[in-house]
Design a protein around this nucleic acid. Structure first.
Lengths: 148, 148
DNA sequence: AGTGTTACTATCAATTTGAAAGTAACAATA
DNA sequence: TATTGTTACTTTCAAATTGATAGTAACACT
């Protein structure tokens, strides 16, 4: 696409899409949230070619969603853990999952339960200010002022 | 990646990612929600090559997120409008945007206002059952039973 | 007749992806 | 001591995807 000038795009969706608009990154992030940290865990879970995995992990690390951490000196081994920005990505993954459940939900599906109550989680996006669900009310888009 | 067998993946995130894990599709969907329907509107807005746009629009149409509709017989012209499934994608876009605003928010940004109240929309994902925000409570993942 | 608009398709080079095999640094086992 | 296994990669290279440019078809308008 070209990820350079997209960082000046005033749309917050563009800014995210510049790096997260890539299937492998989303799935790596999903697995990271599920507790995976190691190269081979991701590789086996995703069936991804090691070349791709190396590239994606490096990109996610550089973008600040994952952090590379040494967990053994001898032999030298690294693991990848979510940063705060990476953890903040969970709501996106849940909304993506919710869409998949509603519109691609045939057959057996993994379910996510609230560990406290044991009830199945049904993620919905709401506007924190009005409390209304996103998509139920009209939206007005405001462009930023031109000047720098 | 390979979009064939991913449809049997029991993870609802994988199912969505199989087609929406692509930057252009997400941006086309964003523009469609902003009211765009025509080929050249998308092309100019995104600066996308027409070859790519044709492919993405065809894919989104085939996936059932957009619908191709003839709006003129002479000359024959088509437009692309969101289906119900496409409209249901809005919460995903808002959560992606919210992440971008929080973690890639430098400089001028477009803002989205509630048309009724005029307040800026701050999208958050919550569990409809417990009311808790996604990410604030422990999650338990339940795999579907193996048998068909 | 000539120009403009809309929605493409054709061509082809450049980039990205991914499959397969190899490597480095050790640990564990026979 | 030799062999096998584990982990985290890198190298190589073919195949697929992407994207820039140009062209086309069907009209409307002047």
């Amino acid at each position: 696409m070209n990820s350079e000038n997209i960082c000046n795009d005033p749309c917050p969706i563009s800014r995210s899409v510049a790096f997260a608009g890539d299937a492998w990154s989303l799935l790596i992030l999903r697995d990271a949230h599920a507790g995976m940290t190691r190269f081979d865990q991701f590789r086996k879970s995703l069936g991804i070619a090691p070349t791709m995995l190396t590239r994606r992990l490096a990109a996610l690390t550089e973008e600040g969603l994952l952090e590379k951490r040494r967990y053994s000196e001898h032999p030298p081994r690294e693991e990848y853990v979510l940063t705060a920005a990476g953890r903040d990505f969970l709501p996106v993954l849940f909304m993506i999952g919710e869409w998949g459940r509603q519109h691609r939900g045939g057959g057996k599906l993994v379910r996510f339960l609230d560990a406290e109550t044991g009830t199945e989680i049904k993620a919905v996006a709401v506007d924190e200010v009005t409390g209304a669900r996103i998509g139920t009310r009209a939206i007005r888009t405001v462009m930023p002022d031109g000047g720098e």
